[in-house]
Amino acid sequence: MTDDNLVIYEEEIEKIDSILARMLKGAEAKCALLVDKDGHLITRQGFTHSLDTTALAALLAGSFASTKEIARLVGESEFSVLFHQGKKDHIHMSIVGDRSILAVIFDDRTTIGMVRLYAKEGATELAKIFATLKSRNTTEHAGLTDEFAASAGDKLDDIFQD
């Protein structure tokens, strides 16, 4: 598993973004985040400027991971949908394919039913994209060049100063 880096190209993100945007419009939700199960934010759509999406991604992934363990303990393989209800804002999370999480944040202008419906649709479409992403052969190096690692090394000394 660690032998594969997750590489996402621009055109894939564009496709994903268009699916998310369509979903948001249909469900009238505020924003959507697509998060890797490892906690990396893949992409986001909607009103996310006021959100710390990096932290949100890590916490959402953590939340999903712990729920999966809970599911295992009660004899389920995993809970595919997770819903947090707040006073004003709510979060609906669902699994996309086998390694991503789609989180939709919405308020009372829409309903959980609408969000569920559109999230399900969106997740199905996204799963197809991730399936093609996964089915790529691991025949090439598209990783980091020597230069990248070396430049990074130089930068570290600048930032990490006691």
Binding site: L6, R136, N137, T138, G143, A152
Partner: peptide, 16 residues
């Protein structure tokens, strides 16, 4: 440094 070194040598998922 070690992580970047490893990433550099890691086979990544790219399309055939």
């Amino acid at each position: 440094k070690l992580v970047l070194e490893k990433a550099k040598n890691t086979r990544t998922t790219t399309s055939a």
